[in-house]
Structure formats: C-alpha cells, structure tokens
Design a protein around this nucleic acid. Sequence first.
DNA 1: AAACCAGATGTTAGCGCTAACATCCAGGGC
DNA 2: GCCCTGGATGTTAGCGCTAACATCTGGTTT
Lengths: 344, 344
Amino acid sequence: MSNSEPPERRKRRGADNPTLADVARESGVSTITVSRVLNSPDSVRPATRERVEAAIERVGYVRNMLAGSLASASSRFIAVIVPSLSNVVFIEVIQGLQTTFEKHGYQILLGNTEYDMRREYELVQTFLGWSSSALVTTGLRHDAACTAMLKRWQKPVMEIMELGQGIDLNVGLSHYAAGRCMAQHLIDQGYRRIVYAGAQMDGNYRARLRYEGHRDLLQEHGLEAPLEEWPEASALEIGAEAFRHVVRQRPGTEAIHCADDTLAVGAILHASRAGIRIPDDVAIAGFTGLPFGQHITPRLTTIVSPREAIGRIAAEQVIARIEGKAVKPSVHDVGFELCVGESA
Amino acid sequence: MSNSEPPERRKRRGADNPTLADVARESGVSTITVSRVLNSPDSVRPATRERVEAAIERVGYVRNMLAGSLASASSRFIAVIVPSLSNVVFIEVIQGLQTTFEKHGYQILLGNTEYDMRREYELVQTFLGWSSSALVTTGLRHDAACTAMLKRWQKPVMEIMELGQGIDLNVGLSHYAAGRCMAQHLIDQGYRRIVYAGAQMDGNYRARLRYEGHRDLLQEHGLEAPLEEWPEASALEIGAEAFRHVVRQRPGTEAIHCADDTLAVGAILHASRAGIRIPDDVAIAGFTGLPFGQHITPRLTTIVSPREAIGRIAAEQVIARIEGKAVKPSVHDVGFELCVGESA
DNA sequence: AAACCAGATGTTAGCGCTAACATCCAGGGC
DNA sequence: GCCCTGGATGTTAGCGCTAACATCTGGTTT
C-alpha cells in the first residue's frame, strides 16, 4: 500500500483571518451555531451564546460579510443614486436616508451620476451585482434599459424628489406645482416683468419642470416668461453673474425667479455689494429653503422642500417593503411650502 | 440495479439569475474564460471575447460582485469614515475621494461616526468584513482597539485632515499651526481682546487644536485667550448666537476668532442685521474658506484649507499603495492659506 | 412506559465566482 | 520529423458563510 499522503492541497488564499470554523472549534460548537449567535442570538441558549461570544473575542474574529451575503443572496446594502454631490439638497436627502437605514442595519452604497443617464445605468448594474436589498434613485426619468432592468428586479425600487407613478415606490414633490406657486406669488406681489434664471438645466430637469410651471402660470396671465440659463453647476458666483446679466441685458426686469436658493442668494449678495436695492429695484425668489436664505438681508422669499423628510420617509417605506409590510407601488407627496421673506 | 435517481437535490437558492455558467454554456466556452473576458479582456482572443460579450448581452447577465469578491478576497471597496455629513468640509473631501477612486474602479463605503469613537470602531469592523481594499478615516485619534485592529490589517490605511505620523498614510494640515496663523494675523491687525468661539468642540478636537494654537500664540504675547463653546453642531444660527453672547457678556471684545466659517458668517450676517459694524466694532475671523465667506459684505477673513485636494491626494496615494508603487508610511502636508478679507 | 413535542444544535450542500495548476495547439528552429 | 515555446483555454478546488433538513435532548402527555 503506497503511503498516499493527501495530495498536497493546492494552497490557501486570503489573509488567513479567523473564520467561523475557528470560533466554532474554540467554543466547542458547530459553525452554524456561531452563525446563529451572530444573526439570531435569541435562537441560541444564553450559556452557549456566552461561550461563543467569548471565543469570538478571544480569537479576534471579524465577520466576512461577503461570504454571508453570498450564501444568503442578500447583502443589506441599499443602493442610493444621486445626480450630484455639489448640491446640498442631495446631501440632506442622503442624511435622511442614511440615518434611517443605519438604524435598521443597512449600509448605503452611494453612486453619483453627474446628471448622466448612462452612468446611472452602469451604477444600477453594479449595485444589483452587490445583491442590494433595495435601490433608491433620483427622479422618474432613466435610460430605457435601466428602467427595464429595475422593473424586472424583484426588490424595492424607490424614486425620490420628483412626484409621480414610476417603477415602484415614489416619494417627492411636484416641481411643476412649486414653479407655479412661486410665479403666482410674484404676480400677487404685483410683479409683471419676471425672468427665470437657472443653472445646468439640461441635466437637471426638475429645475426645468419648475420653469414650466412658472411659464404656464405667467402665460395664463398673458405674460411672457423669458428664461436665462447657465451651463455650469449652480453656485453663488453664477447667481451673481445671472443677476448682472439680467440687470444689464433686460432693463426693466422687476423680479428674478431663480431655479434654486444658491443662485438667489448669490444674486442678493451681489446686489447688496453693487448697491442695488432688493426688492425695490429687483425682487429675487429662490427654491429649496436653505438656512442661508433666512440669514441674509433681505431674507429670501423661497419655496421650502422637506429634503431630510424625503430621505427619511423614503427609507421608512423601503424598509416596510423589505420587511413585507407594504407591497403595493405607491406615490407619496411630501409637498412644499412658500416661505415669504423680504426679497420678493 | 436500482434506478438510483440522483437523490433529489436540496433545492435552489437565490433569485435564479443567469450566472457565469449560463453565459459560458451560451457561448461555448468555460466559465473561467467568461470570467477573464470580464476581468482581463486582453488575455482572451478577440473572436472569443466578442462571442462571450454577445452571450452576456443575450442572457442579460449581471455580475455577482459578492461571489467574485469572496473568491478573490478583495472587493474594490474603499471604506471611508467621516465624523459628520452636516459639515460641508467632509462633503468636499468625500467628493475629492469619490471622483478619484471612481476613476480607478473603486466604490466607496461611507460611514458616519457622529464624532463617536465607539461608532468608528464598529464601522471599521464592518468595513474590514467587506474585504475593503483600503480604509480612509478622519483624524489621528481613535479607540485603542480600533487603532490596534487597523495596524494589524494588511491593507492601506489613510488618516486625513489632521497632520502627523499615524497608523500608515497621512494627508492633512496642522490645525495647531492654522490657529496660530490666524491669531498672529489678528494681533498684527492690532486686536488685543480676542475671543475664540467654537461649536461641538468635545468631539471635534481639530477645532480644539486650532484653539490651542490660537491660545499659545496669544499667551506668548501676554494676552488672555478666552474660549466660548457651544455644544451644538456648527450652524449659522449658532454663529449668530455666539456673536450676541460675546457682545453682551464680554463688552470691549475687539475680535472673535470663530472655529469655522459657518459660525463666522452667521456672526457677520447677524451683526449686519443688528447694525453692528464689522470690523470697526468687532472683527470676525473664520476657518475653512467656504465660497460663502467671499460673497458677503464685508468679505470674511479666514484660512483656506484645500478640502477637495485632501480627498484627491489621499485617494491617489492609496491607489499608488494598492498598486504596490509606494510602500512606506508617509505624511503629506497640504498646508493652508490665510485669506484676508475685510472682516478682520 | 410509550409516544409526543418543541427548542437547541448539528450535518450537508451549495451560493457564484476566481486562483492555481493543467492542457492544448500553432508556429518556429534545427 | 522532433522538440520547444508561449498564448489561449480548460479543470479543479475552494473562498467563508447560511438554508434546509436532520438529529438530539429533556420534559410533558396519555
């Protein structure tokens, strides 16, 4: 009989960290028991549990999340896709999402499309590949292939910010209505020659929806609704530039309806430096409701969107869906609020 | 011979998505070839590659990142840990990190400690469990167990924001020096009665380091260095409150050195509403260099820290290390710049 | 005392992929 | 014709964990 040494295993991979098996050996139980201590402690007798926990501590065990997720085909990742991180709005939404998801033991996978739908599709593919538990994305418009893929996907899909029936779940507000609302306010204040100023409106179609609301309302009053656009991302500097431009190129303008608060505040601060009185010479209105706008003089007239609430509510609904509590697609309107300062 | 039907497999798990094996069958190659098409396309003959790519398209294959990462013991995740998302500074750093890492095919796993070191340790454990390729965290101070775990870890660890030799790699600036620098400027301007105002300085010890620099310099000039702290997170409102408080409680104060620009801008905007002249009645100085400060009147005197550069450089160094280019621990000083406005 | 039950724990078989090694084959040198 | 070489492709054996099923224990029921 030839001494058949076990034929020399291939070799080991990995950093050789302690595994469940090591903990199991150390505490004299099986691997599945250790697994249960980690995942459903109540199903293990307290005495056993303590023994296992001590062993975990002793060998310095760190869970391999990849292996667990692969085996269970679920990762407790939540894919979150936003179009930009430069815009505070998305940061606040992310905070709302993060706080709520973290409380329930989910980890966010954050993706940034830079307002590019192809990029969104790529991110979606990658994130599905991580066996995410749900996906949260911005807006209702996506690449067709992307929408199709998400519709086939069996897990919760949440579309936020904009309002309407989309792929599955929705939490947001009507940007069209918000645009109309502010336009109505400006008309109520007696302004007639009103310019809409926006930044990066190719990609950011929610700003465009607000413009459309604004335009439609003005037209219903027989007024023109000129639009001034800047290709750059919104910034205080762009707001200042927009203001200079409108004052110079469109003399007689009574009010500027800015697509967001950053532009509006940039305009107001510039006017104040230039000695132009707001709202007497020109009125300024914004959208978003950043704290900033309420600290400057004159205070900004704007529309407040509940950003953090969008994140929180979206997260709550996704969690309810994951836990099987609600199963129907739904549309949730978080609304908005007109906040009247002195600027318009 | 009994017809031994294969004893009825247990059953299938997972959503039953197409796998590498399906693509392999469809394109008439082995699974490893499909894997190679995905991971190192150049090692496959173009003809084969095209056949495989067509099959991927046809069956609608989506990679299972979990399985791949488990098998290769590496996930292309970069763990990023920050103390707060409310502070724009960290957002900008994250942007710098994200842009650079994304270019190289890494995905950020974002964790928020809320200035809690236990929480940081928990996040580190979880993130190591995802077989992250590297870890980026904020500051040089951590829970002892956390530091120990990271030192044992075999992959790159990057500590940012603060300057000094830590666990492995470091990119940041000296907050102590920044505090001194601004204090020196205030003294050069002739201010003597200077109050330092900070928010949330228990957790945010970088703000405290700046205070210490400020205090030491003042003391070297035989001056007192009173400190006013607020437990809340920094916000415009806190800046306004700090200003009110100092003016009322410490009459004769000539300058307020704020721990960050948000406080400083809040103070300036409040002063302007209250009809207090900056800098004639009270001078205001900040730290960070937010765009904001340069748009208000008077413009804020502050210290500009290169936030996005910190993110970018940190990411570049981590990538170099992952790719085996640089192997020694290092400390990189990104410096800071005094930006003199009219406020001090 | 046999039968029954429920709670705790164990055994087994993958999850879908890739590292390491093995094999195949065409072309070149002698 | 033979051997050599190297690029392309295939075979095998896990990576570390958990779902499903199996078993074991000590009480309770009849």
